[in-house]
Nucleic acid binder design. Structure first.
Lengths: 196, 196
DNA sequence: CAATCAACATACTAGTTAGTATGTTTTGGT
DNA sequence: ACCAAAACATACTAACTAGTATGTTGATTG
């Protein structure tokens, strides 16, 4: 039983890596089973289709990481604005799970699979909404605490922050250099300061 | 001769549409020739490979539109800050060439093809740099004219503006609604105002 | 008016794809 | 130790993929 669920985890983790690097459609099942040393029979025992595996990656790999790294810190911080900045900084420059040249896993999948795959769209919609909500609510708390201007619209800022993060990850891919992250982070700091 | 170059244009335009909607890898040559009514012989007479066609799309379809829509207006405006806003607004809400549910063509291609395809990376790098430079230079002009604060860093703002635009187009795809564009535009306006 | 070549058309191929059919092995409960 | 079911293994298939080989047109040009 432990061995079986281990096989499943191996498939999910390795598949995630391949998909994160090359995209969902460019990653074939043959390649997955070759790199994992798992046979096709085992693969299709654990996942009915490739798409079912893709959804499982979102829910069982990306989602838990996202909750731990993107959401919980925002819910527990006493200084949301500072947390948004340091979180972004660490996501761009320190997080060993994310790679400069491969962008943001959720952003990548969203762009590739939406809108033509309904199942993926739904799963990603949920994922992204949860992040957005976390930012929004942390900003509302900051508003209550008087840490930011009363004229600040939390929802708008949440959109703006996530959008800019997704976008700069795209820049990172295209330029294949962290230089753009430095410039971006400086501007993000300026922007966040204007909210005070 | 006019007929031949017409065939080429037909292939490029229809291919662009398909690729814009479904992505490069998900668009097969068989599908392209089926929808264009062009035969395989004709296709491969005009383009040596699929990748060659992809590069041609960037250079002959996307680039001219980008220059006309994204760059020239910035070079001729007297009020860069206002132009950046109205341009973004019209790209998101009015431009009939861009569709809510399909994101930004350049952004899509950048994400899908970078970093594993060097040729695409180069072509896209050029494309994006030209837009970024246009924003940057228009902001430098605004700086000279005293239209924005002296402490504003043009390069940083250019990164921030383009990033947020790419990102919000991703949101548009995921949410499949222009509502997020409204919130984004309000925040973009606020942000741009802080540069004055 | 014939020859030439650009511009297409058709039929094919070799490789890859997701998925299946049909097995064999391992594992846990009795 | 035995048996059923879970967990895996192997060999296959049908559809699709980019690309090619080998044609046929139809317009120019000497």
């Amino acid at each position: 039983m432990a061995k079986a669920s281990n096989t499943r985890q191996t498939i999910l983790k390795k598949s995630f890596e391949l998909i994160y690097q090359k995209g969902y459609q460019a990653t074939s099942i043959d390649e997955i089973i070759a790199t994992t040393q798992v046979t096709k029979g085992a693969f299709y025992y654990h996942f009915k289709t490739k798409d079912a595996m893709g959804i499982a990656i979102i829910n069982e790999i990306v989602k838990p990481i996202m909750e731990r790294t993107y959401i919980t810190p925002l819910q527990t911080t006493l200084d949301p604005l500072a947390e948004i900045y340091t979180m972004t900084q660490s996501l761009l420059l320190e997080n060993s799970f994310l790679k400069l040249e491969y962008g943001c896993p959720a952003g990548n999948l969203a762009q590739e699979m939406t809108p033509w795959n309904v199942e993926f769209s739904k799963a990603l919609h949920q994922l992204i909404t949860s992040w957005q909500t976390a930012i929004e609510e942390s900003l509302l708390k900051a508003l209550e605490n008087g840490q930011i201007r009363k004229s600040v619209n939390a929802k708008q800022v949440a959109y703006f922050v996530i959008s800019s993060y997704w976008g700069i990850r795209n820049f990172g891919k295209v330029y294949n250099s962290t230089h753009c992250y430095d410039d971006y982070l400086l501007e993000l700091k300026s922007y966040l300061d204007t909210l005070k």
